[in-house]
Write a protein that binds this DNA or RNA. Structure first.
Length: 735
DNA sequence: TGGTTTAGAGTTTTT
DNA sequence: CTCTAAACCA
């Protein structure tokens, strides 16, 4: 997908000459070599940050194949992200060429989907089941709550959803959750869970958690299936083991229990997803589960300067219950860490922007050398603002997501309904999009009818279209049902043609065109961009496995399991902004960690219990260890958040770094760094402009100092008209 | 039914 | 402060 990316996380690249096509175990240090060649029996690899674990994993797999210990299709390597899966695949392709194709190198969820599709009949789902994302899942929970009369005010949907999700991650079912429920909200969650489960099954849909739960069910209730996989996978490897939840842990154990050639790689100090059900004890207690396990520690860090590593070590040393390990490096001491105490968050942004400009000049660096991390997304705004003022090109990773846009979700809902007629949530989403006069009351009546008849929603729609509920609704619903039939019957030469024709036929674009506003033209643009995603899929699929489903169902599966992170444009010369969670697994020469204040980082909600605080500390450890050469820690004396100003103490994590590694504290930013603003420009709504970072966009609104610009593919941005690096574009259209 | 207004909520989010 | 979603009115 992004060939340039292959080595991005290759922490070892700096010291080893990587030679494609030739596997050289001699390139590994003794511990790495040990981990790569200890193939028989269980193995726990404790891999510190930047210690070359991906390198070990790929060399180990290559070693297994080269020595004929197993053939490629008998190897299973599980990762957490698509990004690390594709990185590993690329590296394997270079190490052992075509043989890597038959291997299962994929995420947990992708593995589950593959198993579930192969055996869907055994677990009572149709092969064409839909994967619901968090938004679909929340809608379903909402519907369930409405149907049993639970008040959303008293029982907030996110609270119910997270309880259900955590239960699933623990492999706890509705009945068990009900029996352990004490508080009203827990009782409500258990009630919702039971019905949710039923409705999901009726809709032939699974959410992300269900993929794990159902796979576990499959493997425990169908011994033949389990045995087949146990026989097949001679060697199993799991990356980021510290982030496995209980369901994942059980699935791995089931698969590995026969041959016991299980290698898990992880770092307990980098466990930062416990709030999502990740269970750190899975790694801490691996040796209890597998008493015969060998343990290898990768303790040499190849990434960071000695100073940065010392700071990271010092911070994380304050946590208790860690696996004992000391990360060391042969790298030079390097620059001391710069601490900057800003007056407020604007000053903080200004400092970061000016330091970037200074290093760019004095150290001859490029923009892509820099990354800015923050604890919460809300912090990015002010930093963006400062970067815009200084004319620094940047990209935000995470943030507003293309696939969360309403118009994209609408298109996807149509496609889901085409694949899976039982998908009620998607059906309800599109029933009145574009507007066809089917309002809330009609939908509610049809829904009640569906429940009382115990029929699928679409069946009731067909009754309605046939006139069972009068001619008025029939006239509205009839054309919709016809549309569905047509979409499902459509045949086209290519997937792209099929989807393009479907979008056209739905009338979504037609409605947006008749709106004829700048916003609607942006939405049309987004829908067109969606077709680009189809092409992206086609090319991604072109050089991957043949076992995966093809056509529209294959595309929908790929869409459901992909993430926005996959499409991050890494080749571009920009500063990168992201949350610390997103930064895990990446590295940059220069790193800024912003907002190091108590109640921001550590976050107020996690500050007052020790497990929460320890996870925040691990987050700090992850953030610090992303830096190769230079590290900046910034905090602000005052910070306004949600309209109120707070005075936060500097983060306790700063105090945990030995003073000899810190410099500054009161660095004054040079004022000269701020670029001359392009003051005085007048913009009118509808004008086309070009932005240094965001590209071409249309002015949607002008209000005082601010202009709102709708950028192609990026959506709307509020910019300061006198500072933003904007330039008027002569032509009328933005194609 | 559909547009407008107002009320409330706002850590982190690999899939 | 700023975005989203439910209530409200035409």
């Amino acid at each position: 997908m992004c060939p340039d990316l292959i080595f991005l996380d290759s922490s070892t690249l700096a010291h080893v000459n990587y030679t494609p096509m030739i596997m050289r175990l001699s390139d590994l240090n003794p511990a790495q070599h040990d981990a790569a060649t200890s193939t028989e029996g269980p193995l726990l690899v404790l891999a510190g940050a930047g210690s070359g674990k991906t390198r070990v994993l790929t060399h180990r797999i290559a070693h297994i194949v080269e020595n004929g210990l197993a053939s490629p299709h008998q190897i299973l390597a599980i990762t957490f992200t698509n990004k690390s899966a594709s990185e590993m695949k690329h590296r394997l392709a270079q190490l052992c060429a075509a043989k890597s194709r038959a291997m299962w190198v994929m995420t947990f969820h992708a593995m589950c989907v593959r198993m579930l599709r192969a055996h869907s009949d055994l677990i009572g789902f149709d092969r064409s089941f839909t994967i619901y994302d968090a938004d679909d899942s929340k809608r379903m929970i909402k519907e369930v709550m409405k149907s049993i009369g639970l008040d959303e005010k008293r029982y907030p949907v996110p609270g119910i959803a997270s309880r259900v999700s955590l239960a699933k991650n623990e492999l706890i079912g509705p009945a068990e959750l009900a029996s352990s429920a004490v508080t009203p909200i827990d009782k409500a969650a258990a009630k919702v869970f039971a019905r949710y489960k039923r409705r999901m099954r009726d809709s032939n849909a699974m959410d992300f958690d269900d993929l794990l739960v159902e796979t576990h069910t499959l493997l425990t209730s169908c011994p033949e299936a389990l045995e087949a996989y146990q026989e097949r996978f001679i060697y199993i490897m799991v990356d980021e083991y510290q982030d496995t939840n209980h369901a994942q842990y059980r699935i791995v154990n089931l698969l590995a229990s026969k041959r016991r050639n299980l290698m898990v790689v992880g770092d307990d100090d980098q466990s930062i997803y416990s709030w999502r059900g990740a269970d750190i004890s899975n790694i801490l207690e691996f040796e209890k589960d597998y008493p015969e396990a060998a343990v290898v520690r990768l303790e040499q860090n190849y990434r960071s300067s000695a100073t940065i590593l010392a700071a990271a070590n010092a911070v994380v040393a304050n946590n208790s219950g860690r696996k004992p390990k000391t990360l060391w490096t042969a790298n030079a001491g390097g620059e001391s860490i710069t601490r900057y105490r800003a007056e407020d968050e604007r000053d903080e942004g200004r400092f970061i922007a000016s330091e970037i400009e200074r290093l760019l000049r004095d150290e001859n660096r490029g923009y892509s050398d820099f990354a800015i991390f923050y604890r919460t997304n809300a912090q990015s705004r002010v930093i963006e603002d400062a970067l815009l003022r200084s004319g620094t090109p940047y990209q935000i990773v995470g943030g507003t997501k293309f696939f969360e846009r309403a118009e994209i979700r609408d298109v996807m809902a149509y496609l889901k309904v085409m694949v899976n007629a039982a998908d009620e949530i998607s059906l309800k989403r599109i029933i009145n999009k574009p507007r066809r006069g089917i309002g809330k009351t009609t939908v509610e009546r049809l829904e009640a009818e569906a429940i009382s008849r115990a029929e699928p929603f679409e069946a009731v729609l067909r009754r309605c279209a046939a006139g069972e509920y009068g001619s008025g609704p029939a006239a509205k619903v009839g054309p919709f049902v016809e549309l569905l039939d047509e979409l499902r019957a459509s045949a086209a030469a290519t997937l792209r043609d099929q989807i393009e024709a479907a979008i056209e036929r739905t009338g979504l674009i037609g409605e947006l065109q008749s709106e004829n506003t700048f916003e609607s033209s942006g939405r049309i643009e987004n829908i067109r961009e969606f077709l680009g995603v189809v092409d992206e899929y086609a090319s991604a699929r072109a050089f991957s496995e043949e076992e995966a489903p093809v056509g529209l169902p294959g595309f929908m599966e790929w869409l459901a399991l992909r993430s926005d992170l996959d499409s991050v444009a890494e080749g571009s010369e920009t500063v990168t902004l992201m949350t610390i969670h997103t930064a895990k697994g990446l590295e940059f020469p220069v790193v800024f960690i912003a907002g190091l204040e108590d109640s921001i980082f550590p976050h107020a909600n996690s500050m007052f219990d020790s497990s929460g605080l320890e996870e925040e500390r691990r987050l700090a450890y992850v953030a610090i260890t992303r830096a190769r050469e230079r590290l900046y820690l910034t905090h602000a004396r005052s910070r306004s958040l949600y309209g109120t100003t707070n005075y936060n103490a500097p983060s306790r994590f700063i105090a945990e770094i030995p003073q000899e590694h810190l410099s500054g504290g009161f660095v004054t930013p040079p004022k000269t760094a701020v670029r001359t603003p392009v003051a005085g420009a007048q913009y009118l709504t509808g004008e086309v402009v070009e932005h240094k970072v965001f590209g071409v966009g249309v002015i949607v609104d002008v209000a005082g100092e601010k202009v709102t610009v709708d950028f192609k593919g990026l959506g709307r941005k509020n910019l300061l008209k006198d500072f933003a690096p904007l330039r008027k574009v002569q032509t009328g259209g933005s194609d």
